[in-house]
Design a binder for these strands. Structure first.
Lengths: 222, 222
DNA sequence: CTAACAAGTTAGATGTATCTAACAAAATAT
DNA sequence: ATATTTTGTTAGATACATCTAACTTGTTAG
């Protein structure tokens, strides 16, 4: 059995491992907003349960079992986000907080019903993949908009970060998943870009925003 | 702030107080499936927080504030049950367990949205009233079917108990809220009845079942 | 290469929610 | 009206998740 607290550690570990190779105690402490000694003792506990590989002073890694458990929590989180947006009319900037709580509900049929009602979606409202019921997460080959060149036409497919502020920024610019962006110009000096899409023929985007917008070619399916 | 655990005590207190005048430590321990000393110490804590009136060896009562908090948890529980049945297609016998977890989610807008999508329902799938957002619970004047007389025609309006087994029994007899029952005969000896409704011209019901079926006159609105 | 800094661990304390064992009060039954 | 049973409380222990303070290991910069 995994407690709510343990689930949060596993989830944080999978999310961090996704972004970088090695996860250390300090990072975990930061994302979970707890102190380092608390992390150390939890790592010992999770290692006992065979959910992480942990040795003092070494980077932390999830075991396969730990990865699977983490992925299943993330599955519940992302299904919930999708349900809140698609079936309950919430904005994509509102759903994270609610899903953060709903993800710990223990009821397979509740989430399977959500999945059915949604038609087995493959991604959540922010474009992140929804792990399947075995914990497998489909790979995605999106690239940040910042890697694009002038003249490229790309489809906005996902977001690298989904903070409320970023989502509200995107709302304010009518930027939604699925829209096609054309790169009008780039500014090598600071990495910013100007893009065109829908009713925005001339929208400037900071380097930071461009790095967080994940795109692919418009003919791609996902 | 009230913890999940505290919420469960408050809810149990309101539910028990509903059924009987005085609530004691033993009953609380039983419904919460914990030991009596645990109840005693929690009562002291809740008394400190002004959520219950508690003195050693005396019956336990909720304060007005405690009642309100309990009612708001029950509101979330019942809205959730209604949502699960009406919007997600669950059977009334499946929803209690899920709602028991969802009720602790802290997100006013999540429950307000449910309420809106449901059209502000006044009762849950078992006929129990849904407290309003101030914690007020509407009174209901149903009577148990067992008090009815031969020849009475009554509408099934609510259930006095909603255990899974009872709900499955009702399913097996096509007994649903809203149907009109006619009392064909009564058996003074053991309190059982025979009733007629829809495609069941001759259904025998035990005394226990008759006590748990709450009815009113078919012309009444609720 | 060592001094300074950053990262990690150990030890010991705290708060919450629970338990068991032992004792005390209240209710009940003869 | 007293003995017995039921109910409730106290005291002290345990598990979990957290903290601070002090110490250790590892990394980096001069």
């Amino acid at each position: 059995m995994t407690s709510l607290t343990e689930e949060n550690y596993l989830k944080a570990l999978l999310n961090l491992a996704d972004a970088q190779e090695h996860v250390n105690v300090k990072q975990l402490a930061q994302v979970l907003e707890i102190k380092m000694p608390t992390v150390t003792s939890m790592m010992k506990k999770l290692a006992e349960k065979k959910l992480v590989h942990y040795e003092s002073y070494k980077p932390i890694k999830l075991t396969n079992q730990g990865k699977k458990l983490a992925a299943l929590v993330i599955r519940k989180h992302r299904l919930t986000e999708m349900y809140l947006v698609e079936k309950m009319g919430f904005g994509w900037e509102e759903v994270h907080e609610i899903a953060e709580q709903v993800e710990h509900i223990n009821s397979p049929k509740f989430f399977e019903r959500m999945d059915e009602l949604l038609g087995h979606p493959r991604v959540d409202p922010h474009g992140s993949p929804i792990p399947d019921h075995t914990g497998k997460i489909s790979e995605q080959d999106y690239r940040p908009l910042s890697k694009g060149l002038v003249g490229d036409e790309v489809k906005l497919a996902a977001l690298a970060h989904s903070s409320t502020e970023f989502l509200e920024f995107l709302n304010s610019r009518d930027l939604k998943l699925g829209i096609v962006l054309k790169i009008i110009s780039t500014e090598p000096y600071d990495g910013s870009m100007v893009v065109a899409y829908e009713k925005h023929p001339n929208e400037p985007l900071s380097a930071k925003a461009c790095e967080r917008l994940l795109v692919n070619h418009p003919d791609k399916t996902s």
